[in-house]
Amino acid sequence: MLSFFKGYKTFAIVFAIISVIIIILIYNTLNVYQPLPIYQPTMVSTDLVDSTIQYQKKYHKIADFALVNQNGKTITQKDYKNKIYVADFFFTTCQSICPIMTKNMANIQKATMKYDDVMLLSHTVTPDIDTVEQLKRYAVIKGVNDAKWNLVTGDKKEIYKLARKSYLAVKDDGNGGPYDMIHTENFMLIDKKRQIRGFYDGTNPDDIHRLLADIEILRQEPNS
């Protein structure tokens, strides 16, 4: 009888060790790094993609730009070199979705303050109204950190071209003419290679949580 219990004890120990190994293997399998997709125009709804690039399957990147921020500084791709950033389109006098979007951008700013390689970029879609002075007033009210978050204005046609042909963010509501107006709740996550890695509803708390999680994933990406 004693030998039976000794044998059972040995079996139990071996079984426990094997069980732990299996659990570890399953855990590691479920937690394998999964890279974020690299969005190309063909992967996005045609409503949001300019007809000239709808069939582009690779090599899509955010185009060069030169816009002016809330401090009167010209902002270009150089300011976002080797940065992950969240981009959106808004206007300061908007009373519908923009206040919610700006609040969520502020939450993203707060959540990523510890990361020097994460920034934010908000483009006004009414640059004739949103002057540098107006953007500065808005930035102060909304708690914008100038080192982290640029609110930019500039040539309306350039901004609209960026929205349609670079960020794939908005439906075709003109090309930036005097009476054209674009409006979107989309947030775009851009990697250090100027590629789109995610789209999110900037008014949806669940999407904001997903965006923050995706930033963490992107920061772990090799060569990021």
Rank of each mutant, 00 (worst) to 15 (best):
F89H: 10
S122N: 03
D47N: 13
D128C: 00
N71V: 14
K81D: 03
G143I: 04
Y138H: 06
D173S: 10
V125R: 04
P178V: 04
P37C: 03
F15D: 11
P35N: 09
K81P: 00
D117W: 09
T29G: 13
A12I: 15
G174T: 05
Y167R: 09
A147H: 13
L218H: 00
F65V: 04
I22T: 14
H209N: 14
D128K: 14
Y179K: 09
I17D: 02
D180T: 06
S3D: 10
T10G: 11
M105P: 03
D79W: 10
V132G: 01
I24H: 05
P178S: 06
Y59Q: 10
K9H: 08
F65R: 07
A66Q: 06
L30I: 14
F91D: 03
S122E: 02
K103A: 15
F15R: 14
T74L: 09
Q54M: 10
M188P: 01
L211W: 00
N150E: 10
D207I: 02
I215D: 02
R197C: 04
L135M: 01
K9Y: 08
D116N: 11
Y200G: 00
I22N: 08
P127H: 05
S3K: 10
S51K: 14
A106K: 15
K73S: 12
D146W: 12
D88Q: 13
I196E: 09
K142G: 02
D128H: 08
I129G: 00
D207N: 08
K110N: 14
K142T: 06
